[in-house]
């Protein structure tokens, strides 16, 4: 296993562009706190997030992971190019000829995807912990370490995202196609939901449940936006007549659904490589 990780790490790290992207990613992650300076203008009301207690445990777990997830989008580029480059350079073929089996090839990629997700998760955990310990109004261990399910959700969400990127890269062999297809897929799920919910099944409840099992919908349900959860925004929203009865928690079924999709995408990638003549 060490051998497989070291092979893949060698491939990624010797590439200047990848090195730059990864370092930039971790620097950006540590600047998640900058979101604190976001200012809101709601009509005549004007306020800053920083004053809303966003650094309070356990809320901060939700806040940082949600924002960090946005930044993670651009690591998808590395994952896609990690496989499409192997096609363009012809190195997938050469790796196999040199004695790497197809399953080892996929394993080495999957291991690095998992490790990268884990590294980002540990990093965001530490950043959040430090931020929280500095700014949070509460620092009892029981409160600090409640809400850790958001960290788990973050890990699963980016692991899923990387698996999907990897699958699209494997399937389409070209980075640009893979990225384009991702966007199309995303929109397609939304349209499908919209059409089913409002046009065909007349706002039936089960449509939500069903669409909750679709890969991208499920993964975006893992971390719901945290802003409207702030009490201040609640108050304002209520005054404006908006009803907030959103469920912000991380659901076990969603977690399992997303894990299954992530593993399926890795497995599909293996099947594709296995069956393809290179």
């Amino acid at each position: 296993m060490i051998r497989l990780i070291s092979i893949e790490f060698h491939k990624i790290w010797k590439n200047k562009a990848n090195r730059f992207l990864i370092i930039a990613y971790f620097i950006l992650l540590s600047f998640v706190s900058l979101f604190a300076s976001i200012e809101f203008d709601l009509g005549s009301l004007h306020f800053r997030l920083a004053d809303m207690g966003i650094f309070n445990f356990p809320y901060i777990w939700h806040f940082t992971t949600y924002n960090a997830d946005f930044i993670t989008f651009f690591l998808g580029v590395i994952i896609i190019s990690m496989i499409t480059n192997e096609y363009t350079y012809g190195t997938l073929k050469q790796n196999l000829i040199d004695g790497l089996s197809k399953s080892e090839f996929i394993q080495s990629k999957a291991l690095v995807i998992a490790l990268l997700s884990l590294a980002a998760t540990v990093f965001i955990f530490l950043v959040t912990l430090i931020l929280g310990l500095i700014f949070s109004s509460y620092n009892e261990a029981s409160i600090v370490f409640s809400g850790l399910e958001y960290i788990l959700a973050f890990f699963i969400k980016i692991f899923f995202f990387f698996s999907l990127c990897f699958f699209l890269g494997t399937l389409l062999k070209r980075s640009a196609f893979a990225m384009g297809f991702f966007v199309v897929w995303f929109i397609a799920e939304r349209i499908m939901y919209g059409v089913m919910k409002f046009e065909i099944f007349n706002r039936a409840e089960w449509v939500d449940t069903f669409c909750g099992y679709l890969p991208l919908t499920a993964s975006s349900n893992l971390l719901i936006e945290p802003y409207s959860r702030l009490s201040a925004i609640h108050t304002i929203g209520n005054q404006a007549g908006i009803n907030y009865d959103k469920d912000y928690s991380v659901h076990t079924t969603t977690v399992i659904t997303v894990i299954i999709w992530a593993l399926l995408f890795l497995y599909f990638s293996y099947r594709i490589i296995k069956r393809r003549d290179l």
């Binding site: 073929k93 050469q94 000829i97």
Partner: peptide, 20 residues
């Protein structure tokens, strides 16, 4: 794939990572 570790082969064109 284990046997191929005892084999040396080049097919068509040289395939390497250009950035290395």
């Amino acid at each position: 794939h284990e046997a191929l570790k005892k084999v040396g082969a080049i097919i068509e064109r040289p395939n390497f990572y250009p950035f290395m």
